[in-house]
Simulated scan of single mutants.
Amino acid sequence: MNKEQMTDAIVAAKTQLNLSWEKMGVDLNMSPVWLASACLGMNSAPAEKAAAISSYLGLGEEVTSALIAFPTKIWDQAVPTDPLIYRLYEVVGVYGETLKEVIQEKFGDGIMSAIDFSMEVDKIEDPKGDRVLLTLNGKFLPYKSW
């Protein structure tokens, strides 16, 4: 089973069981953001977490093995058309250079890791319209000279 087939099986089971990533994360004691990423094929899961996810969803060893497998992180290179994904793409397009300047001013020449990284998605209720709070927490990796 490849990652795409794994994702299809997981999403079908999630839908059939009427689950949310948040509920699954709580029940499995895993970050719902990390859990969704692994189940959508963009991260590998340690064996014990892969087995727990498969068991929870009533899926077999093929899904467990696919969850454990290292992903090839390739995504569509075209500008996304899904409105939510496009807006995140727009944020990086508009503020990417600003973020780079501010990060490098504070830390020096380097990057924010997407490997030593965590992310949270929170809802902030507001009478003017609920707010989305994204927290991206990555280790700073300075460029080295040799």
Rank of each mutant, 00 (worst) to 15 (best):
T98C: 07
Q16Y: 07
S44H: 05
S113Q: 02
S44L: 04
E4L: 10
I10N: 00
V121T: 10
D8W: 07
I85K: 13
T81I: 15
A36Q: 12
W21T: 05
L19E: 06
M1A: 13
I53Q: 00
L17A: 06
Q5I: 13
T72E: 13
L35F: 01
L40P: 00
V132H: 06
P71Q: 09
L28M: 00
V91I: 14
A114I: 11
Q16F: 07
L133K: 15
M30N: 05
S113N: 01
N29H: 11
F70W: 12
A36L: 04
D122L: 15
Q77I: 13
L19N: 04
P83D: 05
S145K: 13
A12T: 09
V102K: 14
N2Q: 09
P32H: 12
A12P: 02
P142C: 00
K106D: 12
P46S: 04
S145H: 12
D130L: 03
K14N: 03
M112W: 10
V132F: 11
G58W: 00
L133E: 14
V33H: 11
A13K: 02
A66M: 03
L57C: 03
D122K: 15
Y89C: 11
E48G: 07
L19I: 01
P32K: 08
T7S: 15
K139A: 10
E101R: 14
R87G: 09
K49D: 14
V63M: 02
A9I: 02
E48R: 08
G96R: 05
N29I: 09
I74D: 10
G129T: 02
S31K: 07
E62F: 07
L67Q: 02
T135V: 07
G25C: 04
L134V: 08
G25F: 06
E4I: 12
